[in-house]
Each structure stands twice: as structure tokens, then as C-alpha cells.
Computed example of a mutant assay.
Amino acid sequence: MSGPLEVLPPRWRQDRFVLSEQALWGTPVVRGDDEALMLVATPGAGSVVRGLGAPERVGDLLDEVACDVAGKRGPVHPTRWLSVPRGTRTSSGTLASLRLTHVSEWDWLTTSTVPRRVAAESAVRRLDTTAEVAAVRDCLRAANPGTSADPAGPDEVAWWGVDDGTGEGVLAGVVGATARGGPGDAVTWHLHGLGVRPGLRGAGVGSALVAAATRAGLEAGAPWVSLGMYADNDGARRIYERLGYRTWARFTSFGPAGVQRPPD
């Protein structure tokens, strides 16, 4: 055991979400125990704070973090991003101390089961992210303009796409996978950047992309594949659950005023 895991209470050293994010933390400041955990990391200009476990206990830990900020004691000023389990008590005073406002409700899902094949999967192909990077970005601008996913990112494993049928190199939909942490030296995959052009939705393209990418990750030896989704996206949830995904963690996130997504 090395890196951030050695400073964690025992329960969290085997948690899928913690293992997935371990490379992002360096050596975090840790508060809590096996019941609830607060991680504070400062990878860049400002801190990222993550709460896990029992919401009522996480609320108490969050108050402690806010007190440190108010007293200029802790390493959490300014705070770039905060995510806590849904149901965590977050008072207006606490959020004001951290200079944060509500941004989103989202879920983190995982699967270790190779999904069944879906009808449209025969149209999915693995993309050449050197030759087709511009085509992927063009598709993302139309299909998922809010994503921070990029095929040229440093941790990208692969991207998959479906052609729009015009023969002009235009992609109807795409999804990518990044490498994340896992148990021991294992590498897990995290899917991101899923998008299908608005005029081409409803034909099973999204399901096919997720099925193909998930299968590729598990067949490559990943102990699990993960993805994140907004909590109110019921249509996407039904697709993911049909493909074997189950919700591992549920979060409420906060950021500085005007921020729409987590920092890169």
C-alpha cells in the first residue's frame, strides 16, 4: 500500500470510488473514520474536498473544514470543488465560509460484468485518436458541449464512435475511456464524453457505445468500469442498468459561483 491509501481508515482503502480517484489526491488531508471520511487535496490553485460515508457524520466533518477556513487554519482556501453524499447537511453559513454554491446532483456507477451485446453495437468502431481527434471534438461540440473530456487528454485509453452514414468522416456519437486507479496495481476504466448528435438520438447509439467501451475495458483486465451521470437523467440510468451498471455513490456538488462542472 502506498500513496494516499496509507493515510486512510481501513474501510476506505478498498472502496471503489476512493481507489479510482487515488492518483488525483497526492497525499490528502484526511478527517474521519470508517463511518465517514473527508478528503482535502490541493492539486492546483485551490482545494478539492470530497466527503464519503454516512451523510450526518459527513455534515459534522464539513463544519470542521469550514471552521478551519474561517480561522485561516486548514489547507482548504480557496475551495475549487466540494462533493458530499446526498443528504449531507450543508448550511448556508458553511457554504459561505467555503465560498461555494450548489452545482449538481450526480451518481457514480460501476460494473464488473461484461454487458450483453446490443443491436446497434455492430456499427461501433474504435477510433484513431491521432487521425480522428478533430472529428471527435466536432461531435462533442454538438452532442455533449458541457463535457471536459478530450481525446488528446493525458490519461485517455481509447475512444469509440459511430459514423453518421454520410461517408464524410462525421461521427454520430462518441464515448471515451480514461485510466483510473484500482486495487493494488490494477487499472480501472472510467467512461466519459458520451454524446450522440441531437438528430440521431433514439436509435440505440448511446447504448451501443457504452456496451462496446465497457466490454473492451473488462476484457482488457480492468476489475471494473465506472461512469458518472446526473442524478435526474432517468433515461441514461435505465440504459446503464440494463448494461449491468449499479450505483456505487450518490453526490451533491458545490463550486464557486458561475462554475458549471468540476475543475479539470
Rank of each mutant, 00 (worst) to 15 (best):
P10L: 14
R73L: 15
Y245E: 10
T90E: 11
A158K: 11
V65P: 00
A70K: 04
V103W: 01
V114G: 07
A96E: 13
S112M: 08
L194Q: 02
A120M: 09
A54K: 09
G153A: 11
G93I: 02
A186S: 15
L95E: 12
P43H: 00
A211M: 08
A142F: 03
F254H: 15
G53V: 10
R99W: 04
G26S: 07
E241G: 07
Q22N: 03
V76N: 10
V49P: 04
S226R: 05
L127I: 08
G173H: 13
M1I: 11
W189A: 11
V124H: 03
E64L: 14
L95Q: 11
T79K: 05
A119T: 13
D60N: 00
G255Q: 05
S104M: 14
E105V: 06
R201A: 06
W108N: 00
V196Y: 08
R125V: 15
S253Y: 04
T166N: 04
P145M: 09
D15Y: 01
G181T: 05
R238C: 05
V124E: 12
L82D: 03
E241P: 03
G32C: 06
R126P: 02
R73C: 05
V118G: 09
L218I: 12
G53D: 13
G53K: 12
T113K: 14
G255S: 09
A203N: 02
Q22V: 04
T188P: 08
A131E: 10
V118M: 09
V157A: 11
P151T: 00
T90I: 00
A45F: 03
A134Q: 13
A222D: 05
A23M: 05
C139P: 02
V84I: 14
R117Y: 05
P154I: 01
S104D: 15
A96F: 02
A257S: 13
E6V: 12
V225I: 08
R201S: 01
H190Y: 13
S97E: 14
G44C: 03
W81Q: 06
A149R: 00
E168Q: 12
M1F: 09
V133L: 08
V157N: 04
A203P: 00
D264K: 11
V84A: 10
D15R: 07
W248H: 14
D138L: 13
R11N: 10
A131V: 05
G169Q: 07
W25D: 01
G182I: 07
G153P: 00
V40L: 00
W159C: 02
E105Q: 13
G46T: 01
V157W: 08
L39D: 00
P9L: 08
G195S: 09
A45I: 03
